[in-house]
Design a protein around this nucleic acid. Structure first.
Length: 677
DNA sequence: AAAAAAT
């Protein structure tokens, strides 16, 4: 094991955080450049069967017949031709493409070495495939596999002004990067590549860079600085980072850039064969090159929306599938082509069983919010998807896991899914950020509503307020109440239909309903910028949940305010809340301090029974010697040999590791959660 | 005493 801190710009102590889990099982003959997975063996393979794997992630190009061609027109020119007719004439779009010039299209005929096969030489520039729709529909829609032949995926397709408007006009959803600079990041692992300071420090290709310019991302966030070069060098990654740290782009940019430079590879042929088998275009099974799994539907959608931006003017077609929505519609979308799939686990399993999705060529796997997915009981589905189907094994595919915490369950998942990975720890965004003002006020249940009205009246009419409650019933009741009081509000919770949920989010985001009453469904993952005020009408029992909730505000460089109603019923969160307030240099009410003191004394006699729902996860404090606030016990399972308990000076709020056997908020055999389930 | 997720 040689996990070494390679980069440590923030003066954090060097330490080894290797997991003995990581090397627990060997790779049975190594990663095998010539590996052929079981499902591909003994198959009649017109293509070079080992090729997809033997070339690693650089898929080779294979040759497909062309029965459709526009003599004398390269496909890009063809696309332009259609662009002109579609938009009534040529307009110079260079400006909006952030410097990419039309030369890139003119030079398209001059293919690079890879595509300069004898085939191309024979046919000349005129015999390009059918990409006439390539530049126009969402994120590219090359109908690969029909009668298309592969093109150079690294060259941008034609611009589409209307689509561009749709994708990039949504304001700067990005992050104000300056305030992230003090977030500490630590990379651990063998041969970790150096981090970047600018998007230009690593070659991500014309398409990605163009879309970065369009999204007006000018500088990478800390996660991006580290994750991008790691992913670009084809390493597996385990990253502990919260939502709001820019992690979606941190994996989308390098993954897409790889796909653009490598092209579709054998997946193209597979889709084609499959299409022939079925005889009809519409029956085709899709073979995504990349899969992103996310815990909630909204998060999946959000990742998809990001993917569409970065897939603009490319041949990659992103798709999203999740429950609660019409599956027929989603299938039709898939059948138009799917190279990057974002999915919630349940619906994806459904799609796989229906034969709509094959993961045989999925060379990039991302698990987003992995802890949350386990928390929600998705482990069987995830293992079904990753281990019990046709997905290339670890070491062949590239796998990236993101998680807010790193308890034992996640460590085991990382051991099983990742190969020689780099561990990235990103400091918590919410709690270190001092531009969120956190207030805790004592409010009895009976007074909550009138207190809430006071707060809402004090808040500007047009600033967004997010009100969290604990139960779905509570959400309905409170929305009802506010509505009757004349407030423009909406609500979101898990019993709402998917349409209602999306509609509510839209109403809120757009400012049409500037008050959103929400349950935990909205706490994590959702990037709703411009939330001025988060109100914990009901405090959660779990401090991680609290951090996620308040993290909905204070984004995009704005000052944020978080107000929490506290009373007797919240005694369970007292100590953790106090720690958070202290860490974030917030004002601490004296009553909270004394309560925390009392609670600590009471709790010492309670034993360690409750370790789900947030409590057990904090047990690490007992081993970190009470060293004040939020030092983490980052020892993992190999506690003895890896540097012991070290503090991180407040940056690393999350307990990435648990070694007390009671770790984490994750159910495991014999566990009892906060509700006694 | 809960929320989330395939139907």
């Amino acid at each position: 094991m040689s996990h070494v801190v390679v980069d440590n710009p923030h003066g954090l102590d060097q330490q080894l955080a290797a997991l003995d889990l990581n090397s627990a099982d060997g790779q049975g003959g190594g990663t095998g450049r010539r590996y052929i997975p079981p499902h591909l063996r003994n198959k009649d393979a017109p293509r070079n069967a080992g090729n997809a794997y033997s070339t690693g992630r650089q898929c080779g190009y294979s040759v497909a017949p062309v029965n459709f061609c526009y003599p004398g027109l390269a496909s890009q020119e063809l696309a332009f031709y259609h662009a002109y007719s579609a938009f009534g004439g040529y307009e110079n779009k260079e400006g909006s493409w952030g410097g990419a010039s039309r030369d890139s299209y003119n030079s398209f005929g001059g293919r690079n070495d890879r595509t300069k096969s004898s085939f191309f030489n024979d046919r000349g520039a005129g015999s390009r495939g059918r990409y006439e729709r390539g530049g126009f529909s969402g994120g590219g829609s090359s109908r690969w596999g029909e009668d298309t032949r592969e093109d150079d995926w690294s060259k941008p397709t034609a611009p589409n002004e209307r689509l561009e408007q749709e994708l990039f006009s949504g304001g700067n959803t990005g992050i104000n990067f300056e305030k992230y600079d003090d977030i500490p990041v630590e990379a651990t692992g063998s041969n970790c590549p150096p981090h970047i300071e600018s998007f230009h420090d690593v070659d991500m290709g014309e398409i990605v860079m163009g879309n970065i310019a369009l999204t007006r991302y000018d500088r990478p966030t800390p996660v991006q600085k580290y994750a991008i070069p790691i992913i670009k060098t084809k390493r597996d990654l385990m990253a502990c980072a919260q939502t709001g740290s820019g992690k979606t782009a941190a994996f989308l940019l390098p993954v897409l850039s790889q796909i653009y430079s490598d092209g579709p590879g054998d997946a193209l042929q597979a889709a084609k064969n499959n299409g022939q088998d079925n005889g009809r275009y519409g029956r085709r099974k899709q073979y995504p090159l990349s899969l992103v799994l996310a815990p909630t539907r909204e998060l999946a959608l959000q990742i998809y929306d990001e993917a569409r931006k970065f897939a603009y003017r490319s041949r990659v077609r992103p798709c999203v599938v999740y429950g609660g929505a019409d599956i027929g519609q989603q299938i039709r979308e898939l059948e138009r082509g799917c190279h990057l799939l974002v999915a919630t686990p349940g619906r994806l399993v459904d799609m796989m069983e229906r034969g709509k999705i094959g993961l045989d060529y999925c060379n990039y796997l991302v698990l987003d919010e992995a802890d949350r997915m386990l928390d929600m009981g998705f482990e069987p589905q995830i293992r079904r998807i990753v281990e019990q189907d046709t997905m290339p094994p670890k070491g062949i595919r590239q796998t990236m896991m993101f998680s807010a915490t790193f308890p034992k369950e996640i460590q085991i998942l990382a051991r099983d899914f990742l190969e020689d990975y780099i561990f990235l720890a990103v400091g918590r965004v919410g709690s270190t950020s001092e531009n969120i003002t956190q207030k805790v006020v004592w409010v009895e249940d009976n007074d909550k509503r009138s207190f809430l009205l006071d707060l809402l009246n004090a808040t500007g009419k047009d600033s967004l307020t997010l009100v969290f409650v604990e139960t779905k019933k509570g959400a309905d009741a409170l929305e009802d109440f506010l509505y009757r009081e004349g407030y423009a509000c909406t609500s979101i919770h898990g019993d709402r239909s998917q349409r209602d949920r999306e509609e509510a989010l839209h109403q809120f985001r757009s400012g049409h309903c500037p008050i959103l009453v929400a349950t935990a469904v909205a706490a994590r993952g959702l990037d709703i910028s411009n939330v001025k005020h988060v109100i914990n009408f009901d405090l959660p029992s779990d401090i991680e949940e609290y951090v996620h909730r308040i993290g909905r505000t204070g984004r995009v460089g704005n000052l944020g305010l978080a107000t929490s109603f506290f009373n007797d019923k919240n005694s369970n969160i007292t100590k953790d809340l106090l720690d958070i307030l202290v860490e974030a240099k917030q004002e601490v009410p004296s009553w909270l301090e004394s309560l925390a003191y009392e609670h600590q004394h009471k709790s010492s006699t309670r034993g360690r029974k409750r370790f789900s729902g947030g409590f057990g996860a904090r047990d690490y404090r007992q081993t970190s010697g009470g060293s004040g606030g939020f030092s983490s016990n980052r020892t993992g399972r190999g506690a003895g040999g890896h540097g012991g308990n070290r503090g991180f000076g407040g940056g690393f709020g999350g307990n990435f590791y648990n070694n007390d056997g009671y770790g984490g908020n994750y159910s495991h055999a014999g566990s009892v959660d906060w509700w006694g389930n």
